[in-house]
Amino acid sequence: MFEARLVQGSLWKKLLESIKDLLNEAIFDCSSTGITLQAMDSSHVSLVSISMNSDGFDTYRCDRNLSMGIHLPSLSKIMKCAGNDDIITMKATDDADTVSLVFESQNNEKVSDYEMKLIDLDTEHLGIPETEYSCVVKMPSSEFQRICRDLSQLGDSVVIACTKEGVKFSASGELGTGNIKLCQSASTDKEEEAVVVDMNEAVCLTFALRYLNFFAKATPLSAQVQLSMSKDVPLVVEYKISELGFLRFYLAPKIED
């Protein structure tokens, strides 16, 4: 028996909205410690990694490890049927070929339940090495979203250059060039608005804006986003999911041909 109840059900809605355009299907691995998901997009350029700890749920039970293959656009459609303030419970029996979703309104006057078919999926898990990154930037997630959107007007790629002073995003194309520079915040009164750069070594890397714009769909999940970068390794874009865990995106860099 698997059952996970989340009072802040909107987190599920936001999570699905964050990944459904990047991934078509994925396996939700459920165990006694929580729910994890790891999946690459079809072009093998980016990877989504989700971790939700059992402690973060209001009720959590998982008697036997369970791998649920889910067609994400379908789950997203069903999650859209939940109200923003609804409590969401996900349930499955051990050998189930379906998953149940129960949406309860806060006042308990409306209860909806949906059942969705699971799918058989063969996915390969990748081992992601523990890495010390040369630069870790924390910034408002809305600012990151805006920068990716704005620079997409100029080109397909963004060059991210990080030094101890701050971080610079640059794009160029047929119409010209654009640079957006963010300086490290002088004071950190408002933690959510701060730009913080933790740098061991300056880096300058190029990434496809198309994918960063997909990642930025996770903006409603968290006020801050964290970018971890080292020379010639995939970028990590991390959004915290409240008390539950995290949503991380990995993106392979573009290199000089």
Binding site: M40, S43, H44, V45, S46, L47, E124, H125, L126, G127, I128, P129, S157, T206, A208, V233, P234, Y250, A252, P253, K254, I255, E256, D257
Partner: peptide, 14 residues
Amino acid sequence: KSKQTSLMSFFKKK
């Protein structure tokens, strides 16, 4: 001109 790399060249299959 820059070329997109694949994640498979950085991360190994488990």
